[in-house]
Design a protein around this nucleic acid. Structure first.
Lengths: 211, 211
DNA sequence: GTCTATAGTAAGATAGAC
DNA sequence: GTCTATCTTACTATAGAC
């Protein structure tokens, strides 16, 4: 995974990258307040004082993680302007399946999954984490889907429900499943049950809305 | 709210109760590792050493919280044996609405909502919290619903889908909505949007499965 | 069951040599 | 950019007087 620092510059230094990856791993398992700078530097193999040559303080590490989450999660959804073109090309059922595939690709990276865990935890403690999760993930996704379902209805590709209701009905179960998926994978367990649930959901939803 | 200690004895002492409620409040906002014994005793108005007359250590406070969550969350669902009687009495749509009402009543207590936040946070860090949330909440609820939907199908009260699929389709969106509800309420914000989403979900689901 | 006092450890962070 | 050394504060927990 390619990280950027808080000035959006790519992180080149191996040590800085290792600090970040270790922090991501530890924060995701113990929470930000449950991990000390000592824990991180011990794992990286440097002294505590050296860490401060790479990050101003412990908080800047978390900021960096949040920033990279923002950037990398932004590409899960295609731009709103492309909705019509996509619906034209592949139809609504495949539209939904492709969205799922996009997320799965995004979540292939273990670092990314760990960052999801961090967002889940820190949203309760950190106002910025909460803002990022509830805005960049929840709201953005639901708004995008409401638009997409609106277009599907206009094209008579699905039955005429309220688009926002459809967006919630489609995405809210997925939010729970995504959390389960992140959990299962980070425990090194088999994820096929969760993935089956996701496919089954798309199927059920489609059967409920198809014309 | 009436708490019990780790030996299942009701907590009578006002100080012990105040320690527990303060811990619940603080843990729910900053996480277990983000709150010190000092933070708690300062708020309660006692010295740190006094806290150890009530709890063996910091960990025992968390154990007590988990135990009380287990006990109080267990009464959200009626016993499995009563499913048929309930379906007989009120029918499937009202069955679902009543389930929602039961949860809402359970979540009326601010302490209870704070404990839900604690479970959300600590499941990522604490194996016991994870076990409680994923078993006592997720699995138990879904299994209960699968049974209930199976009975509804046998009674021809809904269309014959796979009961487990129905359970997931019904409950997984609610898990996300419950989390939203807990969040919104603990921020002192208006919860009517989330509550509307819940009702709307029951309506949508019912329209998808009704005979 | 409260307090004062204190032990012993761990925390975040900095100074300055190399 | 790494290290040693250190500062200061904060942490959990206990001893013992009242």
């Amino acid at each position: 995974m390619n990280f950027v620092d808080i000035h959006l510059e790519p992180i080149q230094s191996d040590t800085k990258k290792k600090i970040l990856e270790t922090a991501i791993d530890f924060f995701s398992r113990k929470g930000y307040t449950g991990v000390s700078v000592r824990d991180i530097t011990r794992e990286v193999g440097i002294k505590e004082s050296s860490l401060y040559k790479h990050f101003k303080n412990k908080d800047e590490i978390l900021e960096t993680i949040f920033l990279n989450f923002r950037i990398d999660s932004a590409i899960i959804l295609p731009p709103v302007e492309r909705i019509d073109a996509i619906l034209e090309a592949i139809g609504p059922e495949e539209f939904l399946n492709t969205g799922l595939k996009n997320f799965m690709k995004h979540a292939e990276d273990p670092n990314m999954r760990s960052i999801w865990r961090i967002m889940y935890i820190e949203q309760f403690r950190d106002p910025l984490a909460k803002e990022i999760y509830s805005h960049d993930i929840v709201r953005k996704t639901v708004d995008f889907l409401a638009l997409a379902f609106g277009r599907m209805i206009a094209r008579q590709q699905i039955r005429p429900f309220d688009p926002m209701t459809l967006a919630v009905e489609y995405q809210y179960p997925l939010f729970t499943m995504i959390m389960e998926y992140i959990m299962v994978k980070s425990d090194g367990m088999d994820s096929s049950d969760v993935e089956r649930k996701m496919s089954e959901h798309v199927r059920f939803f489609w059967s409920a809305v198809k014309p």
